[in-house]
Simulated assay, not measured.
Amino acid sequence: ALPYPGQLQKKQAHVQKLLGGFGPVRPILGMADPWHYRNKAVSTFAAGPGRSLRSGIYAQGTHKVVPVEACLLHHPALDEAIAAVRTAAAACRYEPFNEDTRTGLLRHVLVRHSRAAGEVLVCLVTATPELPGSRAFVAKLRQLCPQVSTVVQNINPRHSSAVLGSAEKILYGRGCIQDSLCGVRFQVSASSFYQVNPVQTELLYNQVIAAAALTGAETLLDAYCGVGTIGLSCAGRARHVLGVEVNRSAVQCAVQNARLNGIRNARFVCADAGKAMLDLAASGQRPDVVILDPPRAGSTPEFLTALDALAPRRAVYVSCEPATQRRDLEFLVQRGWHVEHIQPVDLFPHTEHVESIVQITRM
């Protein structure tokens, strides 16, 4: 494996090659300790030797489970919890689900860790709603791993590679854990979208806040806002925050997160971000700053046209895929926008991924 300084050089060169033509690329921000950073893990169950229960990850391009006892990227509490789940499940004689015969019970376990509170959430994904001896399972699990503060059963009967199904039962605790980013608290459930590297996420958000150049007087539009992590992190430095997100459950979480923190200058709406911006432009409302953090596929021509029509003083484009960000920046530069600077951030050490933050202004 490439040593970490070499990984950072490679990612810096990648961003420079893709985006350097638009403006200055600052040095990439890496991690001081690039190990054990993940606060979420998923392990898939399979039958081991002598009907034993094992869990791990799929071998690339297959559905063959490779057993995993520990991972250098996981927070150690995650591996401890997964091992405890295996032991407790074996004690309860739970069978792993077999995709070919459609028999058995256990499909996956999803675990999350809160850096702020030290809590662990365990979500056991089963093929059917019945979980015999669930109280005994929870008692054994918590005896083995006292950090587990909540246990949830997720029911996923579908023929699908998706880990989670839509139905859920709380077996123990609140059904969620609480974590904090940039001084803002967030409720995190099994299905919440929440960044998996909290140390680098705080660094990323602080760079976004700096690029937004907020003075406390601005109206900020947080497009693709998810559960509100970026917008709520900015709320203390803005006059008003409007978050727009097309996923209704994410919007509900954002509203709850604002309430949890007593943040009153943030509002969240469920809508297509491009359409919402066109509506704002048509009604003469113009935010001072737009932050956009689209999915890996990047933004859309409709959104970018709406951003151009809205004409904020500046925009901050956060991307997890610099190739699609390059395409979108070309669109904006052709319409008179100017790239002030590009800041790469290594959110996922020991992977190919790199994030980049671009500050753009109207010419």
Rank of each mutant, 00 (worst) to 15 (best):
C225N: 07
I230R: 00
A217L: 10
L214A: 06
A213F: 10
T219L: 09
G226E: 02
Y205T: 11
T201E: 07
T215E: 13
C234A: 15
L204E: 03
S233Y: 04
D222Y: 10
N206R: 15
G216W: 09
Y205S: 06
I230F: 02
I209H: 12
L214C: 04
A223Q: 05
Y224G: 11
T229G: 08
Q200I: 09
A210C: 08
A211R: 13
L221G: 01
S233H: 00
S233V: 07
A223T: 11
G236T: 05
T229A: 15
N206A: 14
Y224T: 10
A213Q: 15
Y205G: 05
G226C: 09
L203F: 09
L221N: 06
L232V: 07
A217T: 14
E202S: 09
T201N: 14
G228E: 04
A223D: 08
Y205E: 05
G216K: 11
T201F: 12
L214Y: 02
C234F: 01
E218V: 02
Q207G: 14
A211E: 08
L203S: 12
A235S: 14
T215Q: 14
Q207L: 14
Y205C: 09
T229K: 01
N206E: 13
A217D: 14
I209P: 03
A235Y: 05
C234H: 01
I230G: 00
S233E: 05
G226N: 08
T219W: 12
T201A: 13
I209V: 14
L204Y: 06
A210D: 13
Q200K: 09
D222N: 13
G226I: 07
Y205V: 11
A212F: 08
G216N: 11
G236F: 01
Y224L: 12
G228A: 07
E218L: 01
Y224R: 06
D222T: 09
L220F: 03
Y224K: 06
S233G: 13
S233T: 06
C225Y: 03
A213N: 13
A235E: 10
V227L: 12
C234Q: 00
Q200L: 05
G236E: 06
L220D: 03
Y224V: 13
V208D: 04
G226T: 10
I209T: 09
A210F: 07
T215G: 08
G216M: 10
L220V: 15
L232F: 07
Q207Y: 09
